[in-house]
């Protein structure tokens, strides 16, 4: 099914919570899909889906924190809103650090909940956009040879060709040829352009 709009995925072992929250989301006019366990969500995941996910921390089987871990592993880039019965500060800190958007304590007010859902969907768009750019940059950079990648890494750090040549034990001329090839392959118009591309590909990390 091709879904043009973002989807709010809700994972909670309590059917009443699933039902009440999905009603709330539906009433807001958003697309919602509910799952009674983390495992069932992962099983039905499709890579082209986007939006955000609301997860109950305390669940039998895989719990909320473990699901977050697994989503990171599978590069499921949905922003996560955690729901918990009681505010556990250390747990929420950990969850936020791992990429969670929000940590909400049940019972949650409608306003707070929907605000969080909307900002999560927005964040989801940004993440996807960045991911697409990275994917594109990585595809471009994949065209480079090993030697060219090394030269590029040094070049985007702002080192002059002479220094690069000395560092790599190459002739000045060879470095110049490598740089020309790099520019041509990536389609970068300047060193700044190349640097942005590398950043998008995540090479500067």
């Amino acid at each position: 099914m091709n879904t043009p709009s973002p989807t709010v995925f809700i994972v909670d072992d309590d059917p009443a919570i699933l039902d009440a929250l999905s009603l709330m989301i539906e009433l807001e006019g958003l697309h919602v899909e509910t799952f009674e366990s983390a495992e069932s969500f992962l099983a039905n995941w499709q890579q082209d889906r986007y939006g955000c996910i609301v997860v109950d921390v305390r669940m039998p089987g895989m719990d909320g924190m473990q699901l977050q871990q697994e989503m990171n592993n599978r590069r499921i880039l949905l922003p996560i809103i955690f729901l918990t019965g009681h505010g556990d500060i250390p747990m929420s800190v950990k969850a936020i650090k791992s990429g969670a958007v929000e940590f909400l304590t049940k019972p949650v007010s409608r306003d707070k909940f929907l605000e969080c859902v909307h900002s999560a969907i927005q964040l989801g768009d940004t993440i996807l956009d960045q991911d697409a750019k990275r994917h594109q940059a990585q595809t471009v950079l994949a065209l480079l040879t090993k030697q060219e990648k090394v030269v590029m890494e040094l070049a985007i750090k702002g080192l002059p060709n002479k220094v690069i040549a000395r560092n790599l034990g190459l002739s000045f001329r060879t470095v110049e040829i490598h740089k020309t090839h790099i520019m041509k392959k990536t389609g970068a118009e300047s060193l700044l352009d190349l640097s942005r591309l590398a950043q998008e590909a995540g090479l500067d990390r």
């Binding site: 309590d14 009443a16 919570i17 009440a20 009433l27 019965g85 049940k106 949650v108 909940f113």
Partner: peptide, 14 residues
């Protein structure tokens, strides 16, 4: 107690 309360709260607001 919190689970049903959370649900009630959500249903009520809906």
């Amino acid at each position: 107690l919190n689970q049903p309360l959370a649900a009630i709260s959500a249903y009520s607001e809906v």
